[in-house]
Nucleic acid binder design. Structure first.
Length: 286
DNA sequence: ACCACTACCTGAAGGC
DNA sequence: TGCCTTCAGGTAGTGG
């Protein structure tokens, strides 16, 4: 479940321990994730220096000096943990866990562990020159925050993609071809802040209200990144710390709890939309 | 083109 | 205690 803010938080944790470092060894315990991992991944990575880490949508991209790039997606339950070199006794170290699928050993002694119980995640390696043709990246829409990538995310864009759509605004915002990086939590939160009901047909919302949504989406994402992401179930930052944004949810996971808007006495409701839960205030969101 | 739905997989939580 | 059902942060692929 890591959405954009969680992946951004992990990226920021990995930069200081991976950038400019050499991968001295890779352990791969299983290759049957969402798609089979490249079986020669450890051999391809061994001895390679990392130049730069980036994020595109919910994907981590790790550029190597050998002109190849590593792509990592965390699916629903993926985690990345950093085990720093320590002189402490082995008993204080984290024990290997059941779903540790890949471990990267850095020249500094730091170990980076990819753990994913549901195995909906994926790791790939490919020539950096072909990155714009990667099948998982080519159909992504614009980045909602940061430097424009994949097009400009602005009011004209959002108004254009909503025009004449019969699909709900919820499903438009969740669609990675439209906006890259939003997931169930942050779509629910953004629609609450915007006062828009998740079931409302995108094409029936006034352009004025759609325009308002753009800075709100950006603010929700920035707020979550500032809080270190959201820790639900087992998500942690790469340094093992929990994120804190879940304490600031207005609607997500708050069914039957009071609406947080001043003066509103309604309680948060949950509905099912295309197989996923949507949380909203029936009074504040129309 | 667009849209809703399924499948993939494991584990946690709740009801009986 | 255990068995069963439901639900979970994502998304490619399908079929209407």
């Amino acid at each position: 479940m890591p959405e954009l803010p969680e992946v951004e938080t992990i990226l920021r944790g990995l930069v200081p321990v991976m950038e400019q470092q050499v991968i001295v060894h890779v352990d791969m315990n299983r290759t049957d994730l969402r798609w089979p991992l490249p079986t020669n991944l450890p051999a391809q990575l061994k001895g390679q220096k990392i130049c730069q880490l980036n994020r595109r949508s919910k994907y981590l991209l790790i550029q190597l000096a050998c002109r190849k790039s590593l792509l990592i997606h965390l699916g629903m339950s993926g985690r990345i943990l950093i085990q720093s070199e320590t002189r402490n006794s082995p008993s204080t170290q984290r024990r290997p866990e059941k779903h540790d699928h890949v471990a990267f050993y850095m020249g500094s002694g730091t170990k980076i562990i990819y753990n994913d119980p549901r195995r909906f995640g994926y790791i790939d390696i490919f020539p950096t020159s072909t990155i714009n043709q990667h099948r998982l990246l080519t159909n992504l829409g614009p980045e909602p925050i940061g430097k424009p990538v994949g097009g400009h995310f602005n009011t004209q864009y959002l108004v254009r993609i909503c025009k004449n759509r019969v699909a709900s605004i919820k499903s438009i915002l969740l669609n990675q071809k439209m906006i890259a990086g939003l997931g169930n939590i942050y779509v629910c939160e953004a629609l609450f802040r915007a006062g828009i009901h998740p079931s409302r047909q995108a094409g029936h919302i006034s352009a004025q209200r759609i325009r308002k949504l753009v800075p709100i989406i950006q603010q929700v994402l920035h707020d979550a990144i500032d809080a270190g992401g959201s820790s639900l179930h087992d998500y942690r930052q790469a340094n093992g710390e929990l994120g804190y944004f879940q304490h600031r949810f207005d609607v997500y996971n708050r069914e039957n709890e009071p609406c947080r808007n001043r003066g509103c006495t309604a309680t948060i409701e949950r509905i099912r939309q295309s197989g996923r839960s949507s949380f909203f205030c029936p009074r504040c969101q129309r």
